[in-house]
Amino acid sequence: MKGWKEIPDGGLILEPGNSVEYKTGSWRAKRPVWDKEKCINCLICWIQCPDNAIIVENEKIRGINYDYCKGCGICASICPKEAISMEEEK
């Protein structure tokens, strides 16, 4: 953490999107588990994820970013193919 002499005036934050340094995945009580076989890459889970935690590359889902997923379960509840299930976090 920077001291008051080093921080910018006026409460400015000069690094866009630096909240990625803060990992919200530790909040999670339940973990979404993605089944690649059932997934049809409709990307509905991606557009409805509050935490950008669905990893999409080249129009295809590659997995779930557990660094940020808070385990809300929206993805599992809206998946048309039941390709995501929620499991207790150990």
Binding site: S19, C42, I47, N52, V56, Y68, C72, I74
Partner: peptide, 25 residues
């Protein structure tokens, strides 16, 4: 959605809105 998924996100992860909050969506 496939086209949208290629764009850069303007809201980064790591925000502290509650799990399941509609606002970041």
């Amino acid at each position: 959605l496939k086209e949208l998924s290629k764009k850069e996100e303007k809201l980064a992860s790591g925000h502290r809105l509650c799990a399941g909050c509609a606002e970041p969506i």
